[in-house]
């Protein structure tokens, strides 16, 4: 277990060293998930850095990241394993041509590991250079109940049975992180196996640090105004408030537009980067003066 950080503080520092600024609560949850070998379930609005932290975690642990993107109808053949049928057929013909016809021999040959296509969950059971990988199960809310039931079993046994090969077991379970955007409730049984953390929108200070970290070259003053503007925008009654990802996109856009300070013109031109619903854009334009005034009053971080 030596690959894991030694304390909550060490976890927080390690994440920061890889440019991920985590709240203390999140650091505690990550640290405990690693220590206790439990999956970590992250929820939060889109764009608050749920997927990002998993990528960083793999870097921190110097291990491979395996990602399983969920969708409705996700089944064994895309999540766990599949046989390479075309090559198996070919093999049967080749064996036939060289005179091998015994059923058992053919069967044994075509169901050998060489023809097995490993999908993310099966890959996650294998260690690379003596280290278990990080398995990201992204947007589990998009998958259906059937997959969730399968996952529950996988997460408690850390093994997969391929009928023709046998049971494949993890020497050391992978580090599992599950994310959800809550378009559907995840089943309670699954949730209760996990360490849970809700990632909120960041505070001004934290978001400012993230922007400075991720968009180098952005003038300090402009960075402050951008963050203050976005923070004020989140207070509005919007259908979809901008996430940190949108803040970063916007900051990069303004940098590309050579803006030196926020002004109504440049904001209106680039508002589409921040807001994704027409009603929200209209509302923001309506409140422009007030939002700008608040952005000018940006606190000094």
């Amino acid at each position: 277990m030596s690959m894991f950080p030694a304390s909550v503080e060490a976890t927080q520092k390690a994440l920061e060293a890889h440019h991920y600024i985590a709240d203390r609560g999140l650091a505690v949850a990550v640290y405990l998930a690693l220590k206790l070998g439990r999956p970590l379930l992250l929820e939060g609005e889109p764009g608050v850095g749920k997927t990002e932290i998993v990528k960083v975690l793999a870097q921190v642990l110097h291990t491979r990241l395996i990602r399983l993107q969920c969708y409705e109808g996700l089944d064994i053949s895309s999540a766990v394993y599949e046989w390479d049928y075309a090559r198996q057929m070919m093999q049967i013909r080749l064996m036939e041509a060289s005179g091998v016809r015994e059923q058992d021999k053919v069967r044994h040959e075509v169901f050998s590991p060489a023809f097995l296509l490993k999908r993310p969950l099966l890959q996650a059971l294998e260690m690379v250079e003596g280290k278990p990988p990080v398995l990201l199960i992204d947007e589990l809310d998009r998958a259906d109940e059937e997959f969730e039931a399968f996952l529950l079993e996988f997460l408690s046994d850390w093994q997969i049975t391929v009928p023709e090969v046998g049971t494949l077991r993890a020497e050391q379970p992978p580090v599992v992180v599950i994310t959800s955007n809550r378009t559907r409730e995840i089943h309670d049984a699954l949730k209760r196996r996990c360490m849970y953390y809700w990632i909120d929108y960041p505070s001004f200070e934290k978001e400012y640090r993230i922007v400075r970290e991720k968009v180098p070259g952005l003038p300090e003053k402009l960075a402050q105004q951008i963050v203050a503007f976005v923070q004020a925008l989140r207070q509005q009654d919007l259908y979809k408030a901008p996430g940190v990802a949108e803040t970063l996109d916007w900051a990069a856009s303004l940098l590309a537009l050579d803006a030196v300070a926020l002004a109504p013109g440049v904001i209106e031109d680039s508002l589409g980067v921040l807001l994704k619903y027409q009603d929200d854009v209209v509302r923001a334009k309506h409140q422009m003066q007030d939002l700008l005034a608040r952005a000018q009053l940006a606190p000094q971080p």
Partner: peptide, 24 residues
Amino acid sequence: ALGEIPLFDPEAFFYAARASLVTR
């Protein structure tokens, strides 16, 4: 989890309890 966090740290205790006992 209690065995893994520093006992003098009330904040860590709070977060550890929340991460392990709350799911919503």
